[in-house]
Amino acid sequence: MQRLQSFKFELMPTGEQQRNMRRFAGSCRFVFNKALALQKARYEQGEKKLGYAGLCKLLTVWRNSIDTAWLADAPVHPLQQKLKDLERAYTNFFAKRAAFPRFKKKGQQDSFRYPAPKQIKLDQANSRIFLPKLGWIRYRNSRNILGAVKNVTVSQTCGRWFISIQTEREVEQPVPQATSAIGIDVGVARFATFSDGTFLVPLNSFKRHEARLRKAQRAMSRKVKFSNNWKKAKTKIQRLHARIGNARRDYLHKATTTISKSHAMVCIEDLQVRSMSKSATGTADAPGRSVRAKSGLNKSILDQGWFEFRRQLEYKLAWTGGWLIAVPPQNTSRMCPACGHVSPSNRQTQAQFACVACGHSDHADVIGAINILARGHRVAACGEPVQSGHSVKQEPTEAI
């Protein structure tokens, strides 16, 4: 089977290479914004939007124009990739998978992508890579790159440049080494509670740095906008956000790697995190209730990274030959696993479960994880098309 995998490293560019990369990222941002403005203007005039081929023809005109001749200094393939990104954003919008594409701002997600592997040369022995119009660039070689290079993405975060090398290689069909199955109930007080009674404590990466972040944001608000001191304060905030994100990703990677290697089947709830973390502010005509409390809950939910946790579990279980089964979350912490009685009264408190029918009691998150595992077994046993590493959804039945 074919395996796609990305390897990310920090670049060590020279001063000239850094200036060129900033120019290339700026050119890509300009092309994306110009194409987006053109598409919006055509829509307002009642015209059909241009496809990728039509935008590429306009890109050639822009590169040959006197006003935008500086676009020719950047490699053409990354500019074309930005037009592909815009086309994909429009497709996702009309399919109701994403919001309408927005204009890109300088300093936010600056990146450009080389899609042609023939133009890329990788020298792992000397920890360097060749990119068109940039030459050989050294990178911090922390692990071996496996497979053939498919494409390369260069990005900038907090003044540091990174490279993500996507490769493709042929691997044998994985066979799970473990034979056990486990159910996982995610939460805020406990990040992940397992059906065997164990649990993972939450990292709360954002909460740990919240006070420092608030102090840095207040200091930035007192600076004159776009002054040197304002830029320094902004850089400090960006570094704090990067530290928060890096700590969260590291925690999730370690947790998901351990779980995927220890279990052949993992059952989780099919949670809609975006809906769960919506604001409760409401409108002027219909104001929301308990807005402050809901805001704190939303912040705690997003701090855990539930969606990223599921995404990592999905592809890591595919690599190890396991299965990820997503089950409906309804009444998982209200149903007694001993007698099957379902009632809101079973959940005495947020943490305590006590069945009013048979008296069975345990931690509410453990009860939820046990019920999730039971539903996962039913999904796998009822002939549903369970694919390796892909989540399987099952509508709740009366017997559950």
Rank of each mutant, 00 (worst) to 15 (best):
Arg88Cys: 11
Glu87Cys: 08
Leu71Val: 00
Gln304Tyr: 08
Val154Gln: 04
Arg143Ile: 01
Val386Lys: 00
Asn346Tyr: 13
Lys82Met: 07
Leu122Gln: 07
Phe199Asn: 07
Arg160Ser: 09
His377Asp: 08
Arg239Cys: 12
Lys82Ser: 04
Tyr315Pro: 08
Pro287Asn: 12
Arg310Ile: 09
Gln5Gly: 09
Asp110Glu: 03
Pro132Asp: 13
Ala25Arg: 14
Gln173Val: 06
Thr153Asp: 05
Leu313Asn: 00
Arg212Leu: 03
Gln2Val: 13
Arg311Glu: 02
Pro132Val: 07
Val149Phe: 11
Phe93Thr: 10
Met335Asp: 08
Phe130Ser: 11
Glu308Asn: 07
Ser221His: 15
Lys223Pro: 02
Ile184Trp: 10
Pro117Phe: 05
Lys223Arg: 06
Ala369Trp: 00
Asp196Met: 01
Lys8Gly: 08
Gly288Tyr: 04
Val76Arg: 14
Ala242Leu: 13
Glu172Met: 11
Ile137Tyr: 15
Asn20Lys: 12
Glu168Leu: 04
Ile182Asn: 11
Leu213Ala: 10
Pro115Lys: 03
Val154Gly: 04
Gln350Ser: 05
Glu16Tyr: 15
Ala380Leu: 08
Ala338Ser: 01
Arg375Ser: 02
Val291Thr: 09
Phe226Ser: 02
Lys254Val: 11
Ser391Leu: 13
Trp323Ala: 02
Gly305His: 05
Leu373Val: 01
Gln348Trp: 07
Arg22Tyr: 02
Ala247Phe: 05
Gln45Val: 14
Lys234His: 03
Leu252Trp: 01
Tyr139Asp: 04
Lys261Thr: 05
Gln18Asp: 07
His360Ser: 03
Gly321Cys: 13
Gln81Asn: 06
Phe206His: 10
Ala380Thr: 04
Met21Val: 05
Gly322Leu: 04
Ile237Trp: 06
Cys158Arg: 09
Ala95Asp: 10
Ser290Arg: 15
Ala69Glu: 15
Ala364Val: 01
Ser221Ile: 15
Ser142Asn: 08
Glu10Gln: 13
Ala357Trp: 09
His263Asp: 09
Glu170Gln: 06
